[in-house]
Structures are given as structure tokens and as C-alpha cells.
Simulated scan of single mutants.
Amino acid sequence: MRAFHAAGRDLIGIALRSLDVAGDELSLPKFRMLLALNDLGRAPSTRVAHALAVNASSVTRLADRLVHEGYVTRGSDEHSRSVVTLELSQAGRRLVDRVLAWRHEELGRLLAGLDPELRSATTAGLEQFAETAAASYSSGFPGPVAL
């Protein structure tokens, strides 16, 4: 059990450190919204709120900041004028790609230090763990969007 706690702490540390790639302007809540929009594509703000497990007013305030910073665009739904949609802008997409690329490189660097057989076994174990966790946490739970 201790190994899972340590690995979780380390993976969260990598995720948080990856935000440094974006500079001081990107907080964890902002990046979570950008990740949600990266996964959802153009989506109603209520759907984004559900994915983040927050209320709609929180999404509106966060979206206001991200629109102002140029990372998100607002739109409307062609079927209902009262529905506000959110979508990553090109700058938002580039920022998400840059942060995720840093994470990929950092994980690759760390994994390269493992013996190849251990790396393979670790990968298989983590894949099975992810499947088990997804079965327990994705059904019926809104959000949270991963870090």
C-alpha cells in the first residue's frame, strides 16, 4: 500500500510541476478546465461544470478569466440561444499540448531509469489498476477531471 501512496504523490507532483511549463498564469483550476475542454471539445458550460464536479457559476467565473487570457472561446448552441458553449482556442490547445508534452517527456525520462522487465511489469500493473479504478470511479460519479 505504501508504494501506491508514494507513486500517487509522485505522479501528482509531476502533474503539478508540469504547470510550470505554462508560467505563472496557469493555476490548477484553470488547467483542469482546459483539460476538460480538450477532452470534451466544444461543450455547453453545464456539461463542463458536470465534468469538473463544480457548479455552473464557478465555470462561468473561470471561463471569464480563460476567455480574457485567450485560451477559451465562448459560443452559442444553434438549437438553444440560452446555452453557452465553451471551446479551447488555438492558444489554449497549444498550451495543453505543451504541458502534456512536458509530462510525457518527464515520465519517459523517469521510466528510462527502470530495468526494462520491471518497466514492462509496472506498465501492465498500472494499466490493470487504471481499468479497475475507472470501473469504480467513472460510473455514476461526475468529474473530477484528471490533473
Rank of each mutant, 00 (worst) to 15 (best):
G143M: 03
R9V: 12
E105K: 08
T60N: 15
Q128E: 15
F141I: 11
A112K: 08
A135M: 09
S27A: 15
V21W: 07
G125D: 06
T122W: 12
A36R: 00
L34N: 02
D24L: 08
A135R: 11
L88K: 02
H50I: 07
F129V: 13
R61S: 14
T132S: 11
G108M: 04
V72Q: 01
L34D: 00
R74D: 01
E78V: 09
N55K: 12
F31T: 01
L114K: 02
S139P: 02
G41D: 01
R119E: 15
E105R: 13
F4R: 12
E131L: 13
L28C: 06
L114C: 06
D64C: 05
S58E: 15
S139A: 14
G23T: 04
E87A: 12
R9P: 05
S136N: 09
A6F: 15
E106A: 08
A121T: 06
L100T: 12
E131K: 12
S89A: 07
K30H: 10
D20P: 04
L28P: 01
G113I: 00
S80Y: 10
S57F: 13
P116T: 06
M1S: 15
A15H: 05
L95Q: 03
V48Q: 01
L19E: 06
P116M: 01
L28G: 01
P44S: 08
G125Q: 08
L37N: 03
R109I: 05
K30I: 02
A36K: 05
I12Q: 14
S58F: 12
E106W: 04
R109A: 10
A7E: 11
L111G: 09
A146K: 11
E105I: 05
G23S: 06
A7P: 04
L11V: 07
F4L: 14
L95M: 13
R98L: 09
V48W: 02
A43K: 02
R119I: 04
R119L: 11
L86A: 02
A49G: 03
E105S: 11
P116S: 08
V84A: 04
G8S: 14
S76V: 14
L19H: 04
A101I: 03
L35E: 10
D115I: 07
L11T: 06
R42D: 13
A121W: 08
L110T: 02
R47W: 03
S89G: 05
S80V: 10
G108R: 00
L16H: 09
Y137E: 01
L126E: 09
A101H: 11
S89M: 06
H79F: 09
L37Y: 04
R65W: 04
M1G: 15
